[in-house]
Amino acid sequence: MIRPQEYAAHIKSKAKALGFDFCGIAKAEFLEGEAPKLEEWLNRNYHGKMAYLANHFDKRLDPTKLVEGAKTVVSLAYSYFPEEALPEGQKDIKLAKYAYGEDYHFVIKDLLKTFLKELQEEIGEFSGRVFVDSAPVMERQWAQKAGIGWIGKNSLLLSKEQGSFFFLAELIIDLEVQPDPPFIGDFCGTCTRCIDACPTDAIVEPEVIDASRCISYLTIELKEEIPTEFKGKMGNWAFGCDICQDVCPWNRFSKTHTQPKFSPPEELKSFSNKDWEEMTEETFGKVFKKSPLKRTKFAGLKRNVNFLKNE
């Protein structure tokens, strides 16, 4: 087992050098315990209009269907907690913190490509793929299995050292690497702050989210008009939502990120509600050129801002 242990140490050292806050390793195998949970969640239609979540059921549970001969899942976490938050007063139009800067899908994926390429050069020939919320991978479950943290009542991965403000990513490889023990335990205890604080009652039970009621879903994934039942319940969030993270006691340990690409552009720091309401498509294209907000497109963001304006 000396070789797999050496690989594990090398992988973790390189992950740290690339700026990842956590790196855990798990054996690539079928997530048997997650199958009934996922099936029930889909049967309850908690995925809303996100039909893609019902696709590739087997691939979500079995990494060998994503990478032939897969032996190892390397789970990684990268902080996005800002040094200074944008205005988040009761009347301020707000963005989720992960959307302050450039789109993490591209920033983290570039890091992962470098990671995989250098590992292949240093270790020798092996195959694998990189994933950043871009394929049917149950990233929180793999991170728990790799010992990084536990899944909180808000369904997010929580770390005792750093809370939950981080991006998750994976390398699935056909190289045998010494796995870490899974994270055992639930350190949420009797706390229900996230459940109590959610203004749309999206957390229907601990660890179970009705995504069709989640503000992040309503402002990003939903392409239709936002249902009127959510009038007055959106908390002025125009893209995403941080409520269940902001109230979590573990996030008092959040660590400020050191990635310049995740910092907001200067123009965004001084945005007022009037700027949001009067934004033109030209301004949107300039300020949010590389932003996750491109996902909603200009029309989607205007829909969100208008909905908040008319609350």
Rank of each mutant, 00 (worst) to 15 (best):
W142E: 02
L171W: 01
D242K: 14
W250R: 02
R140M: 12
L222D: 00
E266K: 15
A169R: 01
N251G: 11
G147I: 15
L268Y: 00
I184V: 15
M234T: 03
S155T: 08
L268Q: 02
V208L: 09
C188I: 14
C188E: 05
F183M: 02
E225K: 11
R213Y: 03
C194Y: 12
F262S: 10
I184Y: 13
I243N: 12
I220P: 02
R140N: 15
E229G: 11
K223W: 03
D246S: 13
P206Y: 08
D196G: 05
A146E: 00
L218G: 01
V177R: 00
F253K: 12
P227F: 04
A202R: 13
T192E: 10
C191I: 08
I173Q: 01
I209P: 04
D180V: 04
S155G: 04
I243P: 09
I148D: 00
L175F: 01
W237L: 14
I226K: 11
E221P: 01
K145R: 15
K223M: 09
V208T: 14
N154W: 10
I220D: 02
I195N: 03
I173G: 03
I215P: 02
V208M: 08
M234E: 02
K160M: 11
R213K: 15
P227R: 06
H257Y: 14
S155L: 03
A211L: 08
P264Q: 04
I209F: 05
E266A: 15
